[in-house]
Design a protein around this nucleic acid. Structure first.
Lengths: 142, 142
DNA sequence: ACAAATGTAAGCACGTCAGTTACACACTGG
DNA sequence: CCAGTGTGTAACTGACGTGCTTACATTTGT
């Protein structure tokens, strides 16, 4: 099962961007995502650690963006919630008897670095606010 | 558990590129990767479907590259063995009551397309032969 | 015929993930 | 000051992907 955290986290942040400046309770967000409030709160942990959201306790509380939506790139979202590299290497150490086995991981390393960099560069082109605008544009068309 | 198929498939192809023109039995490849011969054969299925390798049955048989190593990019390897997109979307449909839920998937689509394209472009810069050269260069240093 | 290989099906163990329940804690308003 | 609202977090479950293994039919060279 592939992780959908990046997509869901983006969804959450767009909802927060829509309700600018006012806290949104996890129950409301969960209704939009169609999942459980606790799941949204769990997802909020890495987002808070990354300084993207903050929460207000007590009645009238909830989650809200910690900085302007235009200053949150999707690369930051990706970094916050999707910690592992997307292209994994061997689970078990390759056999060191063969010279390919001895060096393949090191040879593959710059390739995987490059991929990771390309992904981050591509995601840097978008922000939460641009994603919100895209959502609004699509909704108008209906 | 993240998929390591791309890394292992690259490993296999580099081994095949080293033994140019002569078939390599799956048992030999498995020794280099440090895994099971049957697992290598399973991995060979998508590679054969993609026209990257071919196999020779019977004694003295095995797997070999179906075309020159310099003409097999790592993007082709990726396409062959890693069919699903690396960044998944929501597992369950978002709630259509909220206008964000109605449009988020469609809005996210071009972003994910862009990521996929960036990955493929980055992987196109490398080939099986360039990877083999990197392995050889690293081994000389030891 | 025999042995060396592949191709493939079936199944196991383990890890990850989404989803859920439960509960302690924090804050606000009356 | 206390009832209600909401967060933070731990624990658990079920589903699924993945690596790995066993097993067996099939092909082919000597």
């Amino acid at each position: 099962m592939k992780s959908s955290r990046f997509a869901v986290a983006s969804h959450v942040l767009v909802v927060l961007a829509e309700h600018d400046e006012t806290p949104v309770p996890s129950a409301d967000i969960a209704r939009s995502v169609n999942t459980n409030p606790a799941f949204v709160r769990q997802l909020s942990v890495p987002l808070r650690k990354a300084g993207l959201v903050q929460s207000v306790l007590g009645p009238g509380g909830g989650m809200m963006l910690a900085r302007p939506a235009s200053e949150i790139t999707l690369a930051a979202v990706y970094d916050a919630v999707e910690e592992e590299p997307l292209l994994a290497t061997h689970h078990c150490e390759p056999g060191r008897a063969c010279f390919v086995g001895r060096n393949i991981l090191e040879a593959l390393d710059p390739v995987l670095e490059g991929v990771e960099g390309a992904v981050r560069a591509e995601l840097s082109k978008h922000s939460v606010s641009s994603l919100l605008r895209a959502v609004q544009r699509l909704d108008k068309k209906r």
